[in-house]
Design a protein around this nucleic acid. Sequence first.
DNA 1: GCGTGATGTTGAA
DNA 2: TCAACCTCACGCC
Length: 285
Amino acid sequence: MPEGHTIHRLAADHRERFRGERLEVSSPQGRFAESAALLDGRTLETAEAVGKHLFLGFSGSRDSSGSTTEPAPVADWVHIHLGLFGRLDFGVPPVPEPADTVRLRLVGSGAYADLRGPTRCALVTDAEKRAAGDRLGPDPLRGDADGSRAWERLSRSRTSIAALLLDQKVLAGVGNVYRAEVLFRHGVDPYRAGRTLRRHEWDALWADLVDLMRIGVRENRIDTVRPEHTPEAMGRPPRVDDHGGEVYVYRRTGLPCLVCSTPVRTAELGARNLFWCPRCQPPAG
DNA sequence: GCGTGATGTTGAA
DNA sequence: TCAACCTCACGCC
């Protein structure tokens, strides 16, 4: 499930459920057991998302007798990356026996969270957290993000815009679905080199990513079709698969484009599947 | 039951 | 460019 919107949503979910609470921390699967023991009984102070990276901040000691309501400084971060098929699921008590694949379990008074299959789950310092963020381009979901920082790289690159959109050093948080969809929405040929984009084209793509991904956080799924192309508006059946959201081209290979009816195309690009409409997104020039 | 693929990243060749 | 990693749901016997 994990593009940036999922991770930002998970950060908010952690804050909502656990902020300011002492948590039981364990690693039923065992691979995070040592760190879990260090965190057990400590307070989750905050949760933050940067691109597809999730950081859970825990304050120092488990026996801080100060019953203050002031947030304590974060002493350690848990750095989580879900990779391609990691999942983070919340539940409410009664807390069940964990599956033996659960890498990290957090238990609070009113909720628990199970992490499975992450590509990364590690205890890091504040400096390491900052370093991880510094390796990333601007994240459309962060208020402080500056799309022109991505433009500086993009506009000098011979690499295709499709590949650049997935390069987290260029911009952070976009995955295979948003890439395909935002290029479709702007009629941009995925194979165009970054350096052939005009500034106004990039500004429009960036602004659209900001909008689409915010909707993604809110709805907890990826919806990209405009009002005139919804199932209701077109009198077509809704999409039925595990992603749930309504999209134009992602995984619609061979199906008619919702705008022009041309069969949607797919191709492999850098070991990822690319989807586009050859008529709505023609080669430039 | 087995094989496959998936909204991702890293590190070696 | 390729393999490795982490998990699970689905299709096909």
